[in-house]
Design a protein around this nucleic acid. Sequence first.
DNA 1: TTCTTGCTCAACCGAAAGGTTGAGCAAGGA
DNA 2: TCCTTGCTCAACCTTTCGGTTGAGCAAGAA
Lengths: 114, 114
Amino acid sequence: MEDRLSKVFAALADPLRRDMVARLAADDATVNELAEPYDVSLQAVSKHIKVLQDAGLVRRSREAQRRPVHLEAEVFDLMTAWIERYRQQVEQRYRRLDDLLAEESSGTSEGAAS
Amino acid sequence: MEDRLSKVFAALADPLRRDMVARLAADDATVNELAEPYDVSLQAVSKHIKVLQDAGLVRRSREAQRRPVHLEAEVFDLMTAWIERYRQQVEQRYRRLDDLLAEESSGTSEGAAS
DNA sequence: TTCTTGCTCAACCGAAAGGTTGAGCAAGGA
DNA sequence: TCCTTGCTCAACCTTTCGGTTGAGCAAGAA
């Protein structure tokens, strides 16, 4: 898996990682803080953070021996852009179809729907 | 992997599947049509479609021996809702931080920024 | 300097993902 | 009826994912 968008979607495909993102939206947190509510090892959480980081969803700094994790909100734009493009395209299709149907039922003869 | 959102994100984590969605946004297509541009077997494409279907991104009908695939655009809303929620939360954090800084530099004494 | 805290790295494991090929089925067409 | 088209299902293989444990390192605290 190479490209950015693939990494972002893959990162968010895991419920635990989505939960982390949700919590990080409220506030930055250390690895220990993040790990606290979950029933997995600290190393597992550390790996999850790495996945989020590689996807560009999160940034890690250093503060004494702590490593606060910070949500990088710009990535959301990347997803939204992708999603909106196709959503709008589909909407246009429906709009065109509606127009076509409207045209058909008025333009060529009748009006008596069965 | 159980929940809907996880499936949707996982489905879109694959570039080939994203490309299929992009093409399906323009128009419905059969399995053969979808498979044509890719350098993988028809069976592989069939599997990919199944993944999209299980995520609710796509619906398959039957039309003679063909099985046209149709994009289900509503799922996009699910993603957008998830993303927007946290994006807005992060924005509010920044806004609060800005307010705090503004308050600090005006409210308590001074004005002479270094 | 030595201890403790907060984390990461490495090796390993089982399950799932994504690919292949081969068989087979359903629904027109000849 | 038998053939062809358009697909799916099943079995198998390799790679990746998410988890584990054990070792180790960096940076305050004693």
